[in-house]
Design a protein around this nucleic acid. Sequence first.
DNA 1: AGTCAATTGTTGACCAATCAATTGATAAGG
DNA 2: CCTTATCAATTGATTGGTCAACAATTGACT
Lengths: 144, 144
Amino acid sequence: MDQSCEEIKQMIFMFKNIDRQVTQNFEKRTGISLTRYEILYTLLKCGQLSQIELQKKLKIDQAAITRHLKILEEKDFVFRNRNKQNNREVIVEITDRGKGILENCDSNRKQFFDELFHNFTTKEIQELQIMLKKLMDNSDKPHC
Amino acid sequence: MDQSCEEIKQMIFMFKNIDRQVTQNFEKRTGISLTRYEILYTLLKCGQLSQIELQKKLKIDQAAITRHLKILEEKDFVFRNRNKQNNREVIVEITDRGKGILENCDSNRKQFFDELFHNFTTKEIQELQIMLKKLMDNSDKPHC
DNA sequence: AGTCAATTGTTGACCAATCAATTGATAAGG
DNA sequence: CCTTATCAATTGATTGGTCAACAATTGACT
C-alpha cells in the first residue's frame, strides 16, 4: 500500500520530468515551440477553426491560445478573421509560410521522436498508449 | 512509419495533459503545490540537504528551488542556515510545522493517487514504471 | 422590441519554470 | 600570498500556463 503510493509519486515525478525535457528538446531541435507546433499542425489537418475549437482540441486555456495566435500571426504563420456568420468567433487558418515551417522541422521532429522511443517495441508503445488514455480519463474526471 | 510518428505526437500530448491535470488536482485536493510537496517530502526522508542537493534530486532549476524555499521558510515549513563548514552552501531542514503539513495532506494524497490508478493492475504499473524510466533516460540524453 | 443569459475572445494579474548575470565563498596553482 | 577558477545561491528577464474580469455578439423568452 505505502509501497505503491511511493511508486505512484515517483511515476508522477517522471511524468513531469519527461514532459519538461521533451518540450525543451523539441524546441531546441526543431526551432519551434511544441505548443505552437501543435497549433499549426492542427490547423494544417483541420483547415479553418475557431479559437474555441482549437482550445478544445489542444486542451489548453483560451487565453494561452489567443497569445500564441497573436505571435503566430505576427510571424505570418496564420491569419485570423472574424466569422461573418457569427461575429463572436475568430476563424484561424494556416498560411503557406506556416505550412513551410511545418515541413521544415519535419525531419528533425521525426528524428527526435525516433530517438525518444528507439528502445521501445511496437507492443510496448501500444500498451503505453492505452495506459496514457486511461490516465487522461482518470485525471480529467472531477473529484466527487 | 508516419503512423507511428503521429502516435508518438499524441503520446507526448497526453503526457503534457496528464502532468498538467495531476499537478492542478493535486494542489486542489491537498492544499499544497506538488513541487513544494516534493521538496518537503524529500527533506523529511533525507534530513538536512543543501539546495544544490535538493536541485539534483528534484531535477528542477536552482532558481526555482530558491524561490520555493523562500516561500516555505516564510510559512515556517523549513528553516535554512549557511553551512559553517562551507559558507557557500545553505543547509535546509524541515520544521515540525512542515512535517505536520505533510501528515495533514497524507490521506487526501493517498486517495488522489489511488483514484488516478484505480483501473491499473500491478503488472501494468510495473510496465509503466519501466517505460517511464526508459523515457527519462532517452530524454535526458543530449542530442549528438 | 427588449431584457437577460450564454458564447467568444481579449486582457491583466498571477504562478512556476528556464536562462543568464551577479555575488560571495572556497579551492587550486603559480 | 595572490590570482584565477569553480561552486552555491540569488536575482532579473522571459516564457507559457492558469483564472477572473471584461466587452462584444448572439440567442432565447416574454
